[in-house]
Structure formats: C-alpha cells, structure tokens
Design a protein around this nucleic acid. Structure first.
Lengths: 128, 128
DNA sequence: GTCTACATACTCGGATAATGGTTGTCCGAGTTTGGTCGG
DNA sequence: CCGACCAAACTCGGACAACCATTATCCGAGTATGTAGAC
C-alpha cells in the first residue's frame, strides 16, 4: 500500500513544468537530471501525462514537454489518477450476497483522501 | 497503490471473530474455508494480528483464534496498520533543501483517510 | 479408578516457490531545427 | 541568394530484463484434548 515512485516523479515534474515557461518546452534530459532518473524512463511516465491531456510534447530539436492550455486547473488527483489509474484502492472480490460493508467503508475513506487531493491544485504549491 | 489481499483477509476474519464467541476460539480452517484461502496462508496473516495484540491464538485441539480482551476498541486502522505497516503512504526520497511540499500535502491527504478509518470500529459493522 | 501412552486436532514458524507489478535499459523510428554546400 | 541535403537534438514506443513484494505451499515442531489400555 504505497504510491509508486513513478507518481513521485510525475508530481515533481509537473511542478517544474508549472514553474517553467508555458511556451518553450523543457527537455526530458533536464527534467530527468534534476530528479536523478534516466531520461528514457521518465519519458515513459510523461507519455501517460500526455495521454491524459495535461501536458503536451514537442518533438524535434529544442523540443520537450510543456503544460497544455488547461494550465491552472490541474489538481494533484488528476496527476495521480493519470499515473496510478482510477481503480479503487481496495477491492473485495468475495461474493457475500449484498455489497461488502468493508469495501463500502474503505471507499468512503478513500474518498476523503481524494477530495483533499482534488481541492489542491498544482499552482497552489508554487505561490506559497 | 492498492491495499493487499492480505488486508482484505484480515478485515473479513476480524469481522467473523467479532461475531463469534469471545471464549471459544475459531479454527483457522473454518476461517479460511469461508474466504476461499488456504489455511496455512491465513494463519501467517493472523500471526501478525496476534503480535499486534488484537487477537490471541489457542493451540492444541479445539484451538484457534479469538479476540483478545480489548474487544470493542479495535478500529479498522488498527487492523490495516497491523498488516500493511505504519509507514507513510508516500515518501519522497529526493533531497531538496527544506521539506518536500508534495510530501507534506500527500501526508495531509493520508491523514484524512486514516482519521476516517480510525473513527469506525469493528463493532460498528455488525450492529448495522 | 488412576496413570500412562498414544492418536488427533490444532497453531507456529522457517524454507521455498510462483506470480506479477514496478522500475528500469536498449534501440530503432519518426520529427523538427539549424547549418552547409551546390547552383 | 536560394533550395536541397544532412547532421544533431529531440520525442515515441516496443521489447526486453532486474528486482522486489505479494501470495502462496510444504513440512517439521510444538501443544492441548480425549481415549484406550495396563495396573
């Protein structure tokens, strides 16, 4: 029960992108170096963020990644869901007649956490 | 980022133990059968619960597991922590000067979830 | 009747897989930029 | 000057490989209960 390192990479990268220019893209090498990851691996993570529409990639020389237009509306939950998937944190696969009370409770708890992550946006971090 | 199956087994087992007699222990075979797990594996999970003091084991014939005296004070968080450990859900191992803002936020979110799990006790489930 | 021994029904814990997800690496392919060189 | 070509700097995506936690299984050892048999 832990968030993956990939999520950590994604969150830190997104923070860097918010602070960077919204026009000139940032190369994966620079992003990877400052986090101590290999560029190839980080790019794999970033393509997941691209597919979810929060950043866009610019290929070719002087290319890289930059925020897509939605910019300031990106919440932490968005990023986490893009990396970890949106599946529920707890799943009871037993078949006890009606719904599983335990599962219901766990999902309530998860909702509490998610609502906190949904209410803080990326921008809230930098203008602190 | 998922709870392990072991946690699911532990939670369901604890529910069964709460509903059962607090004196006569329940054998691992019976507990395992109703969940479709192998008894040997379930017993490994249960020893973790024993070590954290919420249940106790009775060996020998007519042995098994039963709640320890603390009975009604057991919260869901207790069980989860016994199985998953108490380590934080998110850990940033980078070394950026002061504390990691992202990590701080994530731990706030985790606290929200944990407080919900701490406020519901096992007994709350059965007298529903 | 009582004591001993034994079979039985359990838990306990170590050793050892099988499985699957995370975390990478490697490389070939496509794309854009800038420079160079021939006309 | 201008256009074609080429090298360089990038991203993209598939195919691996290493590693580690989860999820088990197997088995030998300890422990309590109940029963049968000897005295």
């Amino acid at each position: 029960m832990k968030f993956t390192k990939a999520t950590n990479y994604a969150l830190h990268t997104m923070l860097m992108l918010v602070e960077a220019s919204p026009i000139k893209p940032v190369g994966v090498q620079h992003l990877a170096e400052s986090q101590g990851v290999s560029p190839t691996y980080l790019s794999k993570i970033l393509t997941r963020l691209v597919k979810s529409g929060m950043i866009e990639s610019v290929s070719g020389a002087y290319g890289g990644y930059r925020l897509s237009r939605k910019k300031d509306d990106i919440t932490f939950l968005d990023i986490i869901h893009a990396i970890e998937g949106t599946a529920s944190i707890f799943e009871c696969d037993f078949v006890h007649g009606d719904e599983c009370l335990i599962q219901a409770l766990m999902q309530e708890a998860e909702a509490k956490m998610e609502s906190h992550l949904k209410n803080t946006k990326l921008v809230d971090m930098i203008q602190k």
